[in-house]
Design a protein around this nucleic acid. Structure first.
Lengths: 217, 217
DNA sequence: TAGATTGTTAATCGATTAACAATC
DNA sequence: TAGATTGTTAATCGATTAACAATC
């Protein structure tokens, strides 16, 4: 059993990319240094929280001045493993899959979609956004031979688990799942779910409350 | 200042749709009753947590048997405001916007995209997925006149804040933001961010750890 | 009845926020 | 130096988990 020295809380991992977003903008504006106070202001967060998050990356700042922006960007991107490019397979060349294939920023996040898979013969053996689309039956074999570690699932919900099983059999270690389904995979497989309906629920519930309050004055 | 009787924690709002997912499947399978233990098992959650979450919806179960599935579904959907359909505007008729316009499930979540907006004249004045695409300049005026409350932002990051401003001016109260940008909007506007790079960061970081551990044995 | 489950209160856990000495 | 910020420890807050009487 591998003992993690210091588990990084997920909220930290989710905030760090937001820091990067504004750090890159500042860098483009020619700013050289930034304090955690400034970052916190921009994102409406607590300065102590920002400092603690940054601490996880191992970088040290300087009292009074703060952090050198290029150094900080480098530290966060390395910590998030963005400077290490991973090849990925995408299953489900529908409209969402196509949108992801065309998303230009993934490259800078270290994600490289090398092939897409679909069960529709009308789609396979062509290119979408310069990425080859292959029949889903070949996913497992190709994943094994190409040593792919990341799988992206954008198939309809009923097929998601079957696709996940193919990915696992092909040696894929981490699945980015866009289907609104609980995937049943071995414990050691990393699953990151994009639950659009969860976010929408939060939004609709809050909106419903606000509109109700307005009616009541 | 409106005092909320009982603020619902966001984690609760994010778990409830997952319950719905398996409840619908069970209902289709002809199952009539379910216990919180069963739901917890299916989703690898704590039974007490499930019971507490369900309690928020106001429904009462019966000892030994649990909850009647149709009643439970109804209670959760009503609590999440899904049975109340909201019209929405979508800004940015690119590939992601197109994917969302074609997403069939939104209707059952109570979201109805009535129009899309874009600044590309080649896209406007046509239909995408049966939804009219209109020039972005008309968004504010139309939102006002149609009393739209929800805006969906799928434009590129640099334009997101300008679009958000138009939406707010048009009276939109809640924004579902897919652009990786911190929106600057008035405090009373509800913003729900879909941060794809955050999820990807968690995935890549965990994968990096696992692969490193493997090398070290 | 016996037994599983609910509803609810108490204990635990972890993340956020506050406080403050050290530092450039 | 004076003052803002870092790094870090302590206090708070809220969510998760445990415990258990009530109930069908």
């Amino acid at each position: 059993m591998t003992k993690e020295i210091k588990q990084v809380p997920e909220p930290v991992l989710r905030r760090l990319p937001r820091y990067l977003q504004i750090l890159h903008r500042m860098k483009e504006d020619g700013i050289r240094e930034v304090s955690s106070t400034k970052i916190a202001d921009e994102l409406s967060l607590d300065p102590t929280q920002v400092r603690k998050d940054i601490e996880f990356t191992g970088i040290v700042g300087r009292p009074k001045t703060g952090f050198l922006i290029p150094e900080l960007i480098q530290a966060i991107e390395s910590f998030l493993n963005w400077d290490n490019i991973n090849d990925a397979f995408l299953a489900g060349a529908g409209s969402l899959g196509t949108a992801l294939m065309g998303y230009p920023n993934f490259k800078s996040y270290g994600l490289n979609i090398v092939a897409a898979f679909d069960n529709n013969p009308g789609k396979t053996d062509g290119l979408i956004r310069d990425i080859p689309v292959i029949h889903i039956d070949k996913l497992t074999d190709l994943a094994q031979r190409m040593h792919i570690h990341i799988g992206i699932i954008t198939v309809p919900a009923p097929q998601a688990n079957a696709v996940a099983a193919m990915m696992v059999e092909g040696g894929i270690k981490a699945i980015w799942n866009f289907a609104p389904v609980q995937l049943r995979v071995p414990e050691d497989i990393i699953v990151e779910n994009v639950l659009l309906h969860a976010g929408l629920s939060v939004l609709k519930r809050k909106l419903g409350q606000v509109l109700k309050d307005q009616l009541q004055g």
